[in-house]
Computed example of a mutant assay.
Amino acid sequence: MIVIINKSGQLANRLFLMANFIAFSNAHEIKIYNPSFDEYAKFFEKTSPQALVRFPISTNSKWRMPYTDIIRSMVYQVIYKAVRVLEKLNIYESTIHCILDIGLYQKMPLDSAKFINLARKKKFLLCKGWAFRDETNFSLAADIIKPYFKPLPCYLTQAITIANSARSSENTLLVGVHIRRGDYKTFLNGKYFFPLSVYISYINKVQSLFPGRDIKFIVCSNETIDVRVFKGYDVVLEERNMVVDLALLAACDYIIGPPSTFSIWASYYGDVPLYKIENEQEQVITLDKFTIHGK
């Protein structure tokens, strides 16, 4: 079995991490356990009942039991601390276990012979890091990954209601605008921490791509924004749960935003063309620059 030990980033980072392991598990029939998904498991239909997030799902994990959230957190703490003890004792490998720590940015191909052999050889393969990727099987497993991470009805219904309300006619086009602020001020020295004026400039450029269409911009952000900033544009903006935002972006026709796993996951989950805002000075936006992640 494979156990994902550490918490690499926020929600979307961990969705992609688990999704790649699901693709690997589905291809090689090796069980995955992910205690590090504990605080986000409550948002999704398949993971919400699980005291220990896993794939394939246990037949005993169909019904949510009392105190599941607390139990998940306790399970994570116990497993994480046990691994820390092994690391402090410098016991990184034995006949039954191996701690595989790839760091934050080093990439580990799950479809490599090296990893597959290690996963089959060790009873407990304890994985630490974020860039575990199965490029061979990820796209093939979309029909398994997406249902696994279907949001609970309370979040999905809210997102669909907002999208349907905004989509007032057949001529309406919904464009999701992911404004990543907050932590992006320091991430990569603020490379993608754009002022709101940059987003407004891109909104204007996107609007020019669809003359004659009724375009509504669905704005999602991790920072409170005054809607008056977008004066002159038809904007839907309110504070929402992050999972509602994720499902709402996935319900749009197009998405724009800086490079972020949040908008990339929405593109993947909803098969929505995404344009990545990578600099402040982009002069021309064309439709061929929008791509769907995983396609």
Rank of each mutant, 00 (worst) to 15 (best):
D111C: 03
K122T: 08
K122F: 14
I71F: 06
F124E: 07
D111I: 06
E93L: 00
F124V: 10
I79R: 00
Q106A: 10
L86D: 12
D134W: 11
I91S: 08
Y76C: 02
N60E: 12
R64Q: 13
D101A: 02
V75H: 11
S73F: 09
K81Q: 15
R64W: 10
R54Y: 08
F115H: 03
K122V: 08
K121E: 15
N60A: 09
N137C: 02
V83L: 02
I96C: 07
K88D: 11
A82S: 14
N117L: 04
T59Y: 07
V78A: 02
L126G: 07
I102N: 01
V78C: 04
K62E: 12
K88M: 13
I70C: 07
L118V: 10
L125D: 04
S61N: 03
D111P: 07
D111Y: 04
F55L: 03
C98T: 12
T59D: 14
R120Y: 15
I57H: 00
A131F: 13
S112R: 00
P109L: 08
L118P: 11
Q106S: 07
W63V: 15
N60S: 10
L89A: 08
L89C: 09
A51G: 06
Y80E: 06
P66I: 00
N60H: 08
F132P: 00
K128M: 14
K121L: 12
I79P: 03
S112A: 06
P56E: 03
Y80V: 05
E87Y: 06
R54S: 13
